[in-house]
Design a protein around this nucleic acid. Structure first.
Lengths: 107, 107
DNA sequence: ACGAACGGTAAGCTACAACTTACGGATGGA
DNA sequence: TCCATCCGTAAGTTGTAGCTTACCGTTCGT
């Protein structure tokens, strides 16, 4: 049972190429061809990544004629940020003291 | 040149097992054995993941006798969160209008 | 000082996922 | 209506990353 928790977006952003796509889309909404032209990978590859990102709720697609314009989904990004905040706060909760004071943790 | 930007922490959190470790460490600092006992993987595997997380600046280690206590690094988590915020803000910046208006992106 | 335990590293195997080429469906233009 | 373009999917290959077992160094307890 090697699956603890598929937090969607995390898996999606775990890939460098996908992060590059997200970065491109962060600048402005773009079509698949645009992204493929800006990245060193083929169009099909971009499509697949886009599918993953869309499945993760990080991007949304809009049909514009024969083109398909993808854009970032602020809600999805916000969800990730929120989760990160949780980790962060929880860490600070039981750490602040332990972290600063290496209370001479000899045996 | 298939490397766009290795944002450290992203690659680290891209793995479910590593996310589980982070979750465990978020609760409280723990030794390698503790983590291995809580997870369905061997100790060496935990060590390797810990190494990746440490290299990414997401955790720090403290020697406690024969044990090695690892803890989350709030700064590392904050860095991720900050970067996420950047994406988020940038998206909102050039989207709100473009998303609604398909400004006739003909060839 | 000896024994025991904990943790990190090395080497190897397996599985997954990212990328490619090829194909088909759909939409726009002439 | 016919052609061209764009996108998504299918099938296949390859690289890599995660896991395991085995070994070694280090540190504590007796």
């Amino acid at each position: 049972m090697p699956t603890y928790r598929t937090d969607d977006g995390w898996d999606a952003l775990g890939d460098p190429t996908r992060r590059a796509i997200v970065a491109c889309l962060a600048e402005r909404p773009q079509a698949v061809g645009e992204l493929a032209d800006a990245l060193p990978i083929s169009r099909p590859a971009v499509s697949q990544h886009l599918k993953v990102l869309k499945d993760a709720g990080l991007v949304t697609d809009r049909a514009a004629g024969t083109r398909r314009v993808y854009r970032l989904n602020p809600a999805g990004v916000a969800a990730l940020r929120d989760q990160l905040d949780t980790f962060w706060n929880r860490a600070l909760d039981g750490y602040q003291d332990v972290a600063e004071q290496p209370t001479g943790e000899k045996s």
